[in-house]
Design a protein around this nucleic acid. Structure first.
Lengths: 204, 204
DNA sequence: AATTATTTTAATCATTTGATTAAAATATTT
DNA sequence: AAATATTTTAATCAAATGATTAAAATAATT
């Protein structure tokens, strides 16, 4: 066997396990994942997983927090920006989200489903909620359309962006679209959704 | 113990197990569900579950097919209707879906997540796809807005309707809304979404 | 009422699974 | 090079889990 410098080995082994855990957890969900699946994917002995991460649950929490961050972190700096105008924010949220989701298509269903299965652990810990509610984005929406609850728009925009990825198994078989076609449609949505949202605001 | 007529016992016990299985599967998902959880919820001996349904997987398939039917069955008769006009269809789909989802809030995340976890078993078996693609609803969309892929509208409408329920754990903590407030917002969406979709079509 | 068929139970299996332990291998420090 | 610390492995545990079996209880039929 080849010699390994300590630090390199440390990072490499630990990261290898975490990367494998990320892959397997995202694909199968927490409950259906066996620690042996992760060990096999990481090409390490099962005991090493517990040596580095103590338990399946602890390892999962690390993966999960990273994915929650990835799913919700994107939107916070945009909606809280005090200088950008409303329409620009909508364009940016749409484009950034779709770009990220095209590269991480399993992310939304994984995160939303695991939050639902472990609400006591994650639901409260996500303060994206209060950040959003008090954001300048919500204020701008309220100024533009005072008689509609801004959350109604927020749900719709996020829904239009995220839902195609959540419902992909359906739409895919529904339309016989391959991945290239699906991604092409998502690309098209970066233009469509901002146009639509502006029309929605004007109509309300 | 009270006497039981054979047929009554049959239906009652079998239905009791199926009802309990539905509850537990919907709440925890397939992988996290233990057959003992179901037996306990149904107040029956564990062996009875296997006596009536052979295996956890067979029982799950029965529950799952019913739920898939519930989630997708609603939309088919409307979108395939050859006489109803486009705007009426949008109103009806929205109202019917929201009414049903308010009563079955866990349905979308359960079905979509399980389909994702067992694609080989369910994804292809759902022919809602081809029905949709060739529906008069899609034709009507294409006539009204020829230069936009009708599936783009479909994804948006379904997304606006379903996503609030999928993302409920987020929006709930996000807004501090209780269930009554959430349901009230869903009620409001029955009016908002058709207005919005009409505006979207006019703007495209 | 006696016999047969159906339903239910208690006990138990064989696997799977998360985790631990003690020893071996490797790296680091002295 | 010797001593010490860290990393990795093989073997194993205890608990959980899906499923089965044989017997008991109940219902239906003759």
């Amino acid at each position: 066997m080849a010699k390994k410098l300590k630090l390199e080995a440390d990072i490499s082994t630990e990261e290898k396990i975490k990367a494998a855990a990320t892959t397997v957890f995202m694909q199968k969900g927490y409950a259906a994942t066996r620690t042996r699946d992760i060990a096999e994917a990481a090409e390490i002995n099962l005991a090493l997983l517990n040596y580095y991460f103590r338990s399946k649950e602890k390892l999962f929490e690390i993966v999960m927090l990273e994915k929650v961050q990835k799913l919700f972190g994107l939107i916070i700096p945009i909606v809280t920006d005090e200088t950008m105008d409303l329409e620009k924010k909508i364009e940016l949220i749409t484009a950034n989200y779709i770009d990220m989701l095209v590269e991480n298509q399993d992310l939304p269903i994984f995160v939303l489903s695991e939050i639902k299965n472990h609400p006591e652990k994650f639901a409260n810990r996500i303060q994206a909620g209060s950040l959003l509610s008090n954001s300048s984005f919500v204020k701008q929406l309220h100024e533009k359309v005072p008689h509609v609850n801004p959350i109604q728009f927020l749900m719709s925009v996020i829904g239009m962006i995220i839902f195609p990825f959540v419902g992909k198994p359906i739409f895919q078989t529904a339309t016989g679209a391959d991945s290239t076609m699906f991604n092409g449609m998502m690309e098209e949505r970066k233009k469509l959704i901002p146009i639509w949202v502006k029309a929605m605001m004007a109509a309300s």
